[in-house]
Write a protein that binds this DNA or RNA. Structure first.
Lengths: 202, 202
DNA sequence: CCGGTCATGATAGTCACTACCAACTTGGTA
DNA sequence: TACCAAGTTGGTAGTGACTATCATGACCGG
């Protein structure tokens, strides 16, 4: 089992995975999420239904899978430990958004976001994902949140930051991605915490 | 179809509905949510599975249904229109919590909350319910949110308030309801917006 | 006592999702 | 080259949530 071997397999696997997801998002956008069955997705992608389930545990995952949480957590760890909580978290969110919206498959990201917002089941799962992201943020804050009272305040601050992020994401999706996402996030954070809490205006 | 007539029927209907929900929450807490089927619930409540579906559209609704949103919206409408957004919203949340935790079926409320937090599917739906509550809050704010920029800021502020609320609810459930919920909400809001943003300390 | 309305029940079906098992492809090895 | 081993895929048969449809029974007013 050479490194190159496993790399080749992993690459092929990632390829079919992307094929399946692309077809799925396209079908969901065209016909609607509920009106599209897993069999439809499998057929469109040219694989068996079983294979779809091998790559995506649930139908929701076809739209929602992403681990951008790591991206945010990294930035938080990298930020100066002394600063105020909301500035550290908010800054990390803006930086992560800058990276992601510069990405090549920005359009896929946008399509997935729009599906999330319009489909109740997906929206619910997405909000739960943000909840998980919140836990990651808390973890990235490290020992600062040792005592329960501090932890409680960190929880509250992180969840509020993510709520602002979500507001910005919705607005961005409504605008079809025309507005600058990092700028929107900054505005949402400012609306919550005050204009001076986040940092120099962009 | 006299008023008294329909009232009688409605009362009986509400009765069976409560019976079903009580048994459902008990079974979920005892055996776990996923390990309990709708048939189990129906059998425990002494009705047919169909009847369960008549009263609760989905399995999740057996735990989640509540329309406390109206309660909050009322308080917002009643609050002085001039004040800062987060104070209006935060105050309404605290008042609503004060009413609810004084309620007779506080224990049922607590059991449902603990189920929500521990079961991923329920937690996701609950967060989506909060999203709906957020829309209600925006609506209650009235014409203040006419222009899109103001609306955006109101969205961000409301979602942050509800995020703080959620943090407080989780903490309350973890404490088995021993801590004063309105007090917790106040602390969470203070952690997000600053100690002086909410109002006189409780 | 009759007629309409509402709650309930039973049946059959769709669809997401899960084991379980068989077959094939692929890359490294004797 | 022939073979082995591991990973990937496919088929089958199930469970369980949820829906549509129709039939039945309880109740209240006339």
């Amino acid at each position: 089992m050479t490194d190159q071997n496993s790399t080749l397999r992993a690459r092929r696997r990632a390829q079919t995975r992307r094929t399946i997801q692309t077809h799925a998002v396209r079908l969901f956008s065209e016909r609607g999420y509920d009106a599209t069955t897993m069999n439809d997705v499998a057929e469109a992608a040219g694989v068996s239904p079983m294979t779809v389930y091998r790559h995506f545990a649930t139908k929701e995952d076809l739209v929602l899978v992403d681990q951008h949480g790591e991206l945010v957590a990294e930035r938080i760890v990298a930020s100066p430990a002394g600063g105020p909580l909301v500035r550290r978290i908010g800054g990390a969110l803006i930086e992560a958004a800058t990276v992601l919206t510069g990405d090549a498959d920005r359009r896929l990201l946008l399509a997935r976001l729009q599906l999330m917002i319009s489909t109740p089941a997906l929206r619910a799962r997405h909000l739960d994902n943000q909840y998980a992201l919140q836990q990651a943020v808390i973890g990235a804050l490290g020992d600062d949140a040792a005592d329960p009272d501090t932890a409680f305040q960190a929880q509250a601050a992180a969840s509020a930051c993510l709520a602002a992020l979500h507001t910005a994401l919705v607005r961005w999706a409504e605008d079809d991605g025309r507005t600058d996402l990092p700028h929107l996030i900054g505005k949402a954070l400012a609306a919550v915490f005050g204009d001076d809490a986040i940092g120099p205006a962009r």
